[in-house]
């Protein structure tokens, strides 16, 4: 199951050229671009690991593309996303985020139903990959 999340979740994965254009757009707006990776891409997991430092002071997408490629080399089997943080007052939040790398095999998620209090059901979304194995061995 192909994982989709972030700004361009409805599109096929962006090419490097498209990533470059998006990063240039974010930098043009003055947003800090970050590269993040994780092997626990649960929709509720907002805390991905930061690759290096946030790139506050880069003026050109070439530097970000370089970092993305470095990150891909190390975490080829993880999910990698690019996020752009808008530091301006009243925003102070991530304005743009999209996936730039995914593992070759994506087993996906399953829905766990837990019957409580008689006939009531509690639902939990669990990742096949993350369920059984510890961090670092999931994909």
């Amino acid at each position: 199951m192909r994982l989709t999340q972030g700004t361009f979740s409805y599109l096929p994965d962006l090419t490097d050229e498209q990533i470059r254009a998006q990063v240039a757009y974010a930098q043009g707006k003055g947003w800090a671009v970050n590269v993040e990776y994780t092997d626990d891409p649960h929709p509720r997991n907002t805390y991905w690991e930061l690759w290096g430092l946030p790139m506050f002071d880069l003026k050109d997408p070439a530097g970000v593309l370089h970092e993305i490629n470095e990150c891909r080399k190390v975490f080829a089997n993880s999910y990698i996303r690019v996020s752009a943080f808008d530091p301006s007052h009243t925003w102070e939040t991530v304005r743009l985020s999209f996936i730039v790398n995914r593992p070759p095999e994506e087993p996906g998620f399953y829905l766990e139903r837990n019957e409580v209090n008689g006939r009531s059901v509690q639902y939990t979304v669990r990742s096949y990959a993350a369920a059984a194995r510890p961090a670092g061995e999931r994909y």
Binding site: A62, G63, H66
Partner: peptide, 8 residues
Amino acid sequence: VLKKAMGG
């Protein structure tokens, strides 16, 4: 530094 200078 090199990353910062890229594009310029």
